[in-house]
Design a protein around this nucleic acid. Structure first.
Lengths: 340, 340
DNA sequence: TTGAAAGCGCTAACAA
DNA sequence: TTGTTAGCGCTTTCAA
């Protein structure tokens, strides 16, 4: 593998000039730059990220911390983030925290702090103050996606508003008995999402002058089977609801399948709405409030890069933590209709 | 951030001893090691991966190259691989190649070759000889998962055998008209999977003395909607099949949903079998041939580490490329029954 | 605009 | 078993 001095020799310049020409930092005449780039590509030179990182203190690598990888939302965020990172020449190193607490500690102490990454973004993860503090303490910008993170810039849905939006859509269609399939407490610990979505639902119901009926609520696990079971219970009752608002599209799809199995027609007998705009939503004709995780990932990456680049002008400007609200759009398909 | 010499001073030893004590390479007395570890943790010392990598030539980071991230199989493989890598102190850097060819070239030339990773595994990706060659050429071990890779150790399903297994299950239940929903040519380019699964299907059909009927084959895209459409066509025909073998569980689920919409009962009127053991398979009672992507990821990581570690004893032993066959198990649930 | 040279923080000979 | 020390391959002052 050719080194920087091979390129320097080949181009007839110093290694400093090669470094400047290739990194774009510092002044280089156009002709020299062209010659250097030519030499580099002829020799097949690629900088060593270790040497470069050691000398400069920047690694051009971003860490992504996720609770798990088998969920559409998380992977979509990562795909979006990687799209912009790759374009800017950054790598993305993945830390999947679905192991035990011991593993999680190891990831933080031995991996994230090992100087392998310039910055970190956490997806739907509630980091402890110590975890946040240690990252910020060594100057690693940190951004949270999909969940709250104290003292850190975040990008997230306004879950209360989104749930209101979905519920109000049902109310506007004349529904009076609207059930809610939310997330169980277990999910609340990390995400805080179930509580907020339930809150939004209850607000909308109350604002419409309707009673909040505990019997119309079921906690589930954000999966199709979970939504199916919850809906089965809800719809088997004598005084069954005419509409279901599920806190995720997958649970909503489960509800649609449950309705079918019970001989109910969607939307004639039962309206169903979810949140997400999951890839399967269209197939099932599901009305939903779309969030755009790919775009959220892009935004998170952009925030991180913005926090990283100012340094290059010596302006160490740790940006104030800002809570950005991700966009969400009501999409009406064929699973919601006027109350029978 | 404390450096290695802070630890050395604090523990009253040399930096070399700290390095040895912390990395486990080279002899250190037990008491010294304990003291060093104590000092390191007191000071909150973590090695700089850049400095360590630059000096040692190893980065303790593995690259994972995937065609996309929004598929259960790929993410499961990654989760499995990361499980073992993390345990061994390795990081995993992700390269999602779903961009254009230009981006792909950049990933190879500027990222994978940038010395950021010690080894690479490619999931369901057909790398060019140049791509394989350049990695191998700079001494990066390479392992392929889920697809063939010339000159490289791979871990993959025996797709022909798996498809035979599924088809033979249907034949053993007395089915004579068995349809196949496979993958379209587009998927064949990268995966080579559709062709082999179709081959296995046809072999099984022929071996049973049945005709291979072109009308009983549909090419689709491995998704639920795709399987649904294909099955609709297949089942709408006058002389409809009594069984469907889909090349993936998601397509099989689509077929089940199509059958329901056509008023056909599964399995009384139609048997359906897939391949994968997707998380949704159980919910739909789908019979399938399970592959275990998580385990495949673990195995791939283990292979890579095995290729990496010998060096530490100076024995540069690039292992012969070996084709490992991943395990697959027939799982009979409730979607397959004797032919009506 | 360019070059010389001093590190960046660690590892691994080599010597003791 | 431990310490000394020469790099690893770059970036970035500083001087020209």
């Amino acid at each position: 593998m050719p080194g920087i001095d091979d390129v320097a020799r080949h181009a007839g310049v110093s290694t400093a000039t090669v470094s400047r020409a290739l990194s774009g930092n510092g002044p280089v005449s156009e002709t020299t730059r062209a010659r250097v780039i030519q030499s580099a590509s002829e020799l097949g030179y690629v900088v060593s990220s270790n040497a470069s990182g050691l000398a400069s203190g920047r690694t051009r690598n971003i860490g992504a911390v996720v609770p798990r990888l088998d969920r559409w939302f998380f992977t979509s965020v990562i795909e979006g983030a990687q799209r912009v990172l790759l374009r800017r020449g950054y790598d993305l190193t993945l830390y999947n925290l679905n192991g035990d607490g011991e593993e999680r500690r190891r990831v933080f102490e031995h991996h994230l702090l090992r100087n392998r990454v310039d910055a970190v973004f956490a997806i739907c993860l509630k980091l402890s103050e110590a975890e946040v503090g240690s990252l910020l303490g060594i100057g690693k910008p940190l951004v949270g996606v999909g969940g709250p993170l104290p003292g850190v810039s975040t990008l997230r849905l306004d879950d209360v508003a989104v749930a209101r939006l979905a519920t109000e859509h049902l109310i506007s269609l004349g529904h009076r008995r609207i059930a809610h399939i939310g997330g169980s407490h277990e999910f609340d610990l990390e995400f805080h999402i179930p509580t907020n979505r339930r809150l939004g639902y209850e607000q909308a119901v109350r604002d419409a002058g309707l009673p909040v009926d505990e019997a119309l609520h079921r906690a589930s696990d954000f999966t199709i089977p979970g939504g199916y079971d919850a809906a089965k219970q809800l719809l088997d009752a004598p005084d069954r609801p005419t509409a279901v608002f599920a806190a995720s599209d997958e649970m909503a799809i489960g509800a649609i399948l449950a309705a079918r199995d019970l001989g109910l027609r969607v939307p004639e007998d039962l309206s169903v709405i979810g949140i997400d705009d999951h890839p399967l939503a269209e197939f099932f004709g599901l009305s939903t409030v779309a969030q755009h995780p790919g775009r959220q990932g892009e935004q998170a990456a952009t925030l991180l890069l913005a926090a990283l680049e100012p340094r290059r002008n010596g302006v160490v400007a740790p940006p104030e933590p800002v809570g950005h609200t991700a966009r969400a759009d009501l999409i009406v398909r064929f699973s919601t209709a006027p109350s029978p």
